[in-house]
């Protein structure tokens, strides 16, 4: 297994087309996480609560990330094996809730690839803006590429969990 390509650190990836937040997608996502809150399903309830349209669950933004994780996972030059990837950390900071009708442009930046034992840790930050330039949210995602670190520099006894 080859280590990941450090040349990708610092690269930014902007979603090529805006992500259209749809009512049915919000409903489908809410059902998938078992959430029957009417604000995710009933437009009248959402409007009565003061929202423009159906409210997306707080982690829905993960779906607005273009492609796979906002990273060029299929670019052989990065050297990422999807099956070896597990999630390390995730954070969202929402300026306001995402609602149906939003058109979001996501900018993801691979801010670092560091070695942790035999694993490599990729840190990506996300900025979610509407097409009119309103910042809706920011996010951070840490992914663990299991066992892909270069074999040198591994202290005895340290390894994959």
């Amino acid at each position: 297994m080859m280590p990941l390509n450090q040349d990708f650190v610092g690269r930014r990836f902007v979603s090529p087309v805006p992500f259209q937040v749809g009512r049915e997608h919000i409903r489908q996502f809410a059902r998938a996480v078992g959430d029957d809150n009417p604000l995710h399903h009933d437009v009248e309830a959402a409007r009565a609560a003061g929202y423009a349209d159906l409210v997306a669950p707080p982690t829905f933004l993960a779906t607005a990330t273009p492609g796979a994780l906002g990273l060029p996972t299929d670019d052989p030059a990065l050297g990422l094996d999807y099956a070896l990837i597990v999630h390390g950390e995730q954070r969202f900071t929402l300026r306001r809730p995402v609602v149906a009708g939003d058109e979001l442009v996501t900018t993801s930046t691979l801010t670092g690839i560091r070695t942790a034992g035999r694993n490599e840790v990729l840190v990506t930050t996300y900025q979610y803006e509407t097409t009119s330039g309103e910042e809706v949210a920011v996010g951070t995602c840490t992914l663990v590429s299991r066992g892909t670190a270069a074999p040198r520099d591994i202290p005895a006894g340290e390894g994959t969990r």
Binding site: H40, P58, G88, Q90
Partner: peptide, 14 residues
């Protein structure tokens, strides 16, 4: 809280 729109920040480590 009843209002999913009232979440301002949410972070976890897996």
């Amino acid at each position: 809280i009843g209002d999913p729109g009232a979440v301002e920040e949410f972070g976890v480590k897996f």
